[in-house]
Write a protein that binds this DNA or RNA. Structure first.
Lengths: 233, 233
DNA sequence: CAGTGTGAACTGTTTCACAGCC
DNA sequence: GGCTGTGAAACAGTTCACACTG
């Protein structure tokens, strides 16, 4: 095997709890807000308070990746933003292909939150001839037939799967074959492929069910925390 | 305070790991697929395999809530579907109000996956006069001004927040004041309110960042698992 | 015999508490 | 004094392994 080649300074991702990565995203979000508000530094306890985490948690999380803080001062917001972006890999632009231009697909094509974090949707695909060869929110929609070609030509790294459940596995297989390195799946099915491609799934009904559970079983209190999905076998 | 009144047979939700609840949703999803395919029973190892979990995990998860299995046989799919729906609280219909009819809001109004799990969107709200007093995907859109009135009249239980980040906290406060018992937040901000209302947040950029992390830090292998969000302070 | 339910062992994550630094 | 980084302790969640059951 080749040596464990990672970008310089990167940490073995296996050794980082998945939950830490998600919190990193949240830290980044808050830091960006703080910067916008003109704040130059934050302490771990401040940052934690904004998100409902303990100060120790914040420090431990960041310490997985290096020494970003300044004792007595805290963290410089701009420094930490850069550091987290570099860790998350969003210090560059990722190109994305969207498969499915139904309700959800169309909405995501116009969603501003992606672009602002460095994700650019550069093509969309649909099986339905009636939806093809148009531009939605500035993104060209191609027939599925051309998926391979476009993924290559436009150097698409990630595929977003927003097709009906029954079609999702087939779409994922085609994306993988075309060479994407990651898939974000919105279809309510468990996807699997041999290996070598990262998968993250979001099932909106599942999120509502989490809410339903916490309301149904003793109406009260707050409940918040994200869930778990299956690894592709 | 009053005694810990819960629906009969319910378990203290505090003692159930949040991850278990999310897996329950996934079990439900698979069981519904199996039923559709005409399968009458499943074993824990079968169900686990479909989702990438161990058989022990499946059994432990279910055992939090009761004895649903039949030794030597496995679980009867239809029984287990009913049991899980009852646990998740989706054995009844929840009424939902959507706030925000931008890209994401509109898409969710038409999303079939909600209705199929017992969630019914019965009203939408928007600040923009141009978007108000129409029907989108069969759902009436009202001005924000009427939120209180409509939430009461239509007995809305949950609010979905699909407005820009800057407006989200204000919207959440109004929903809580109007009496919803749960909020599903899609805006990329941390929401907080005193208490008594459940909150689940989904940040789509965060999901992409999870993917980015796993691809950026050593392109390979599978990666899947859901993350963590903050409790409302 | 195939398959559940579950205590006991284990692994992973969070919290604590404090030494070191600005 | 305020705040980070980090071992060690505490806690939580997962896996193991086996007694028990139809």
């Amino acid at each position: 095997m080749s040596s464990p080649k990672r970008k310089p300074g990167a940490v073995d991702p296996e050794s980082v709890p998945k939950a830490v990565v998600s919190r990193l995203s949240l830290y980044l979000r808050e830091l960006q807000h703080l910067l916008r508000d003109g704040q130059a530094t934050v302490s771990s306890s401040q940052l934690g308070q904004l998100l409902g985490f303990s100060d120790a948690q914040v420090r431990k999380d960041l310490a997985y990746f290096g020494h970003f803080g300044h004792p007595g001062i805290g963290y410089r917001c701009d420094e930490l933003v850069s550091a987290i972006r570099s860790i998350l890999g969003t210090d560059r632009e990722w190109t994305i292909g969207m498969v499915g231009t139904g309700n959800l697909g169309r909405a995501l094509l116009g969603y501003r939150g992606f672009a602002s974090q460095g994700f650019r949707i550069v093509a969309a695909f649909d099986e339905d001839p009636a939806r093809v060869n148009q531009t939605i929110e500035g993104v060209d929609v191609f027939p599925m037939m051309r998926l391979d070609e476009i993924v290559r030509d436009r150097a698409i790294s990630f595929g977003l799967v927003a097709v009906p459940a029954a079609a999702a596995q087939g779409v994922a297989d085609r994306l993988v074959a075309a060479g994407v390195t990651g898939i974000l799946n919105f279809a309510p099915v468990t996807l699997s492929f041999p290996s070598g491609v990262s998968l993250v799934s979001v099932d909106l009904a599942t999120e509502l069910e989490r809410l339903s559970f916490s309301v149904a079983n003793r109406g009260g209190e707050k409940a918040e925390e994200k869930p778990d999905d299956p690894p592709p076998e």
